[in-house]
Amino acid sequence: MTNAFAADEAKAVYRAIQERRDMRHFAGGEVAPEVLRRLLEAAHHAPSVGFMQPWRFIRVRGEGLRRQLHDVVERERVLTARALGQREDEFMRLKVQGVLDAAELLVVTLADGREQHVFGRRTLPQMDLASASCAIQNLWLAARAEGLGMGWVSLFDPAEVGVLLGLPEGAEPIALLCLGPVHAFYEEPMLQRERWARRAPLASLVFDESWGRPSDLFDPLSSSSSSSPVEPT
Rank of each mutant, 00 (worst) to 15 (best):
A4G: 08
A6D: 15
A6E: 15
A7P: 13
A7W: 01
E9R: 12
V13I: 14
V13Y: 03
Q18G: 01
E19N: 09
R20Q: 10
R24L: 08
R24P: 06
R24D: 09
A27G: 02
A27Q: 09
G29M: 10
E30P: 01
V31Y: 02
V31C: 04
P33A: 02
E34H: 12
V35I: 15
L36E: 12
R38T: 11
R38Y: 00
L39N: 04
L39K: 07
L40A: 12
A42R: 03
A42G: 10
H44N: 15
H44S: 15
H44M: 14
A46I: 11
A46N: 12
V49D: 00
M52D: 13
M52C: 15
Q53V: 13
Q53S: 14
R56K: 11
R56M: 06
R56L: 05
I58R: 10
V60A: 06
R67M: 10
V72Q: 11
E74A: 14
E74F: 08
E74L: 12
R75N: 10
R77D: 14
V78W: 05
L79Q: 15
L79V: 04
A81K: 05
A81C: 03
R82P: 00
Q86V: 12
Q86L: 14
E88K: 14
E88D: 05
E88I: 00
D89I: 00
F91N: 02
R93L: 06
L94S: 10
L94P: 03
G98A: 15
V99G: 05
D101C: 02
A102R: 08
A102K: 09
A102W: 07
E104F: 05
V108L: 15
L110T: 07
A111Y: 00
G113K: 06
R114G: 11
H117R: 08
H117D: 04
V118I: 12
V118D: 02
F119L: 10
P125C: 04
P125I: 03
P125Q: 03
M127Y: 12
S131Q: 13
S133K: 05
A135C: 15
I136W: 01
Q137S: 12
W140M: 08
L141T: 04
L141I: 04
L141V: 04
A143C: 07
G147Y: 07
G149W: 05
M150S: 12
G151W: 08
G151A: 10
V153R: 00
L155A: 14
P158M: 09
A159G: 00
L164H: 09
L164V: 03
G166M: 07
G170N: 03
A171V: 02
E172N: 10
E172I: 00
L176T: 04
C178N: 09
G180P: 13
F185Y: 12
E187C: 01
L191I: 01
Q192F: 00
R193E: 15
R193K: 15
E194W: 06
R195K: 15
R195P: 01
R198P: 00
R199T: 03
R199M: 01
R199Q: 07
A200Y: 08
A200L: 15
A200S: 15
A203G: 00
F207V: 02
D208G: 02
D208K: 08
D208Y: 03
E209M: 02
E209F: 06
D216A: 10
L217C: 04
L217D: 07
F218L: 07
P220E: 14
P220L: 08
L221N: 08
S223A: 14
S224V: 14
S227T: 14
S227Q: 14
P229A: 05
E231H: 11
